[in-house]
Design a protein around this nucleic acid. Structure first.
Lengths: 197, 197
DNA sequence: GTCTATACTCAGATAGAC
DNA sequence: GTCTATCTGAGTATAGAC
């Protein structure tokens, strides 16, 4: 899961702009990143940026789109490799933790940027497909009877809220140990809360 | 828990500015709220705003300070009224849910604004006192043996991450039912994950 | 498609009268 | 302490040559 912009038909300069945008938006935030900042960091001129993207907002939107696409692909891959609900849940959590450790900047941007502040048209992140995928695994568990009956959103909050919270603590520098250190404790506790008696 | 700026020695116009700032920062975000916006909404002039606050960032910082102070006071109140760890945890969660329903805007600003983007000097929110207080209840439970031994941060993530996640879903409009509907399911599941055998 | 130069807007902040 | 008027600069976006 190396490069987020490898896919398809992106021109080289567009790729460099997206790469710089990811770095700078994460580091300083969308509003604190000016076009001149992007020009300096990417080595691509103002004119070319506006040739490649309608405006700054469109640039952010497209960036978001690419990141989500990569994430969706990885999730699909995990689901394909694991069949039972328990295996899927554990594998997805492991992937979430590893992803956050490998790409803290991307994780930060995806999870905690206030997207609607600079992309008014885009839907809230938790309505995005990757979050649906996570929820669907819980739903599947409830339907097959592996997980106890309760409101799906509540069950999902237990299942992933704890994980996301730990990731946030990690990203904020509160955690002193690597994320994966806590994989077993975390998943076993969550599973205890969710599994059918 | 009505007014966040009632306390102490705030001048009337300062109070109006803070009130407007809370509304607008939440509605449109810090960067999308201009000083002219604040002037129009509060009815206080530019000059008076800059008389009351050093600059826009200081305004945001002071706003944050007031909100956190109110929250700390309410938490202290809850702890004073409940003695056992279980009672305290359940009461704190109930308060979190009720608070989010009563003051969605404040909750949104406290939890999900990217504070460091406009208040570079302020520490991450999860290092703030209210979050310490939540964690300390878990710590107390582990020390008294009511809760099972595990990393405190992991236990806290289970205990409150699920709650915060549900709140986020609520604030994003994904939940169709009132938050308190899920109080029992949520707390019982979390407790199941955390309680000693 | 890429660049440089530039136009235009409007935000943040200040000066200074009352 | 409150206001109006104003400055200054940064930042988005465009024009137009190559």
């Amino acid at each position: 899961m190396a490069n987020f912009f490898d896919a398809s038909d992106i021109s080289p300069s567009k790729k460099r702009i997206l790469q710089s945008a990811l770095t700078l938006f994460v580091e300083k935030g969308f509003f604190n990143t000016s076009i001149p900042d992007l020009v300096e960091h990417s080595g691509v001129s103002t004119g070319s940026i506006y040739h490649a993207f309608k405006d700054k907002e469109a640039l952010a939107t497209e960036l978001m789109h690419h990141l989500l696409a990569t994430i969706e692909a990885e999730q699909a891959d995990i689901l394909a490799r694991h069949q039972t609900v328990k295996a899927r849940y554990f594998a997805l959590v492991e992937w979430m933790l590893r992803f956050a450790e490998a790409y803290p900047d991307v994780e930060q941007f995806i999870l905690y940027a206030r997207h609607k502040e600079f992309m008014p048209s885009v839907k809230p992140i938790c309505s995005a497909k990757p979050f649906m995928t996570l929820r669907d695994v819980i739903l599947e568990g409830q339907e097959t009877g592996v997980l106890r009956q309760m409101d799906v959103m509540v069950a999902s909050s237990i299942a992933y809220g704890s994980v996301l919270r730990l990731i946030q603590l990690y990203l904020d520098g509160v955690l002193s140990t690597p994320l994966m250190t806590h994989f077993d404790e975390l998943t076993e506790a969550a599973w205890r809360a969710l599994a059918a008696e």
